[in-house]
Design a protein around this nucleic acid. Structure first.
Lengths: 226, 226
DNA sequence: GAGAAATATGACGCTTAGATAACAGAATTG
DNA sequence: CAATTCTGTTATCTAAGCGTCATATTTCTC
């Protein structure tokens, strides 16, 4: 399954060029010129990365960026900003709002492709969009579906995000603080104990009655999967 | 066990940006805008690395850097300096005073993250997630797991921290006082005899019944591993 | 080899981290 | 808009883990 990419660019010529190149690279590309629409699409499609022009219609790119960061569903999606040359000021402000990288116009598509690849390699070791598997547990991010030995497991939205977070980092111990920011979003006043409760719920959902626990508790450190 | 990072930056927007990104990377971040406070925090928390802006309130970054180097507790902590573009002069003086690397504004967060990771990989492999190995003993800091000839060894939190401390300094004799500050923290009212007890517990956990002791007691000096 | 100093060991409470259940408010859904 | 699912918080319970101390053992010195 290809990585999904959302391109927010209102110059039709540049947009077309980018779409063409990224599709040629095998990405599954959606494109819009409109900021509001971008937010909707991002929430709906959960893309793996977003390319965002600084100057777009309706809302400024910077505002789109900030709002993306605020929503838990999109808080962790990598964003690359496109800025015009010499807008030093903008560049800095763009980074301040939470973009992961920026590229200055004019740029070669190759450069953008390389940067995106670098970021994805780092942030999504197991690229979302592909089905994640650990032992007999499978999570399909596109279909929003989880199976345990082929049988569908019903999960609530938070449980799903928590499990996806774990499955993207198999074996890794994640502290409660890391889970709070990673699953609930950057600035949430969630009580750390709440993580315990969600982990318990997730355990109850994915563990087979007799079998061993898939989530390991690491005392004074956190939890890990697998 | 997340790496502790101290960020000294007085531009609130940039500071927030950096905190956001590094927390997302899993670092345990403290931030201050004030040079004097930075020195106090550094002494108190013993961070694993410091990001230091050249221009900050109260004392110049360069002076903070110099003083950090002078104090024995912080003399070896890696420091990355942030400098404005083109201040070649500053850059050189920064390195002269003991910074390990510098990054010129404006920079992408990605770049800073990569540089820090590179430095940590060099100075503290375990913090970069590298598995520590001594003979047939392996400690995986990411998974928070210890194996002896492939077989998992269950350890309590303190035992784990103690072992990691030893494994990061193989062969070196560590005094009880050093172990107390290194493993229990700068200010702990721990009795020095307690170290003996934890060492005993660690020995019991990692030594194979018939085999020889992996931890050597150095009378009137301390302990060493390997 | 005796005495002293340092370390090893075993036992004992206490603290605290995590599991769990119950509950109420929020969000969804039909 | 009512019903139901979902979610965050809190209180309680349990047990692992830890620090301390008293005692045993080892090592060093003379």
């Amino acid at each position: 399954m290809a990585a999904r990419l959302l391109i927010v660019e209102d110059d039709p010529a540049l947009a077309e060029l980018l779409v063409w190149h990224f599709e040629a690279e095998g990405y599954d590309v959606t494109q819009t010129a409109d900021g509001e629409e971008a937010l909707l699409l991002a929430a709906e499609q959960a893309p793996d990365a977003i390319i965002l022009d600084w100057m777009i219609e309706n809302i400024s790119g910077i505002e789109v960026c900030r709002r993306l960061r605020r929503a838990p569903e999109t808080a962790n999606v990598p964003i690359i900003m496109l800025t015009a040359r010499g807008e030093e000021e903008d560049r800095i402000r763009g980074l301040e709002t939470g973009a992961d990288d920026y590229v200055t116009k004019p740029f070669s598509p190759r450069e953008l492709i390389v940067r995106l690849a670098a970021i994805l390699r780092r942030t999504r070791p197991a690229l979302a969009g592909k089905t994640l598997k650990i032992e007999d547990l499978e999570l399909d991010p596109v279909a929003h579906r989880v199976r345990r030995s082929g049988e569908e497991v019903p999960l609530g939205p938070t449980e799903f995000r928590l499990l996806q977070h774990f499955m993207e980092r198999p074996g890794r111990v994640l502290s409660r603080a890391q889970l709070v920011t990673g699953v609930w979003g950057q600035d949430s006043d969630i009580e750390e104990r709440t993580v315990d409760v969600q982990v318990k719920r997730l355990r109850a959902a994915i563990n087979t009655p007799g079998g061993k626990d898939m989530i390991r508790t690491v005392r004074s450190a956190g939890y890990s999967l697998g």
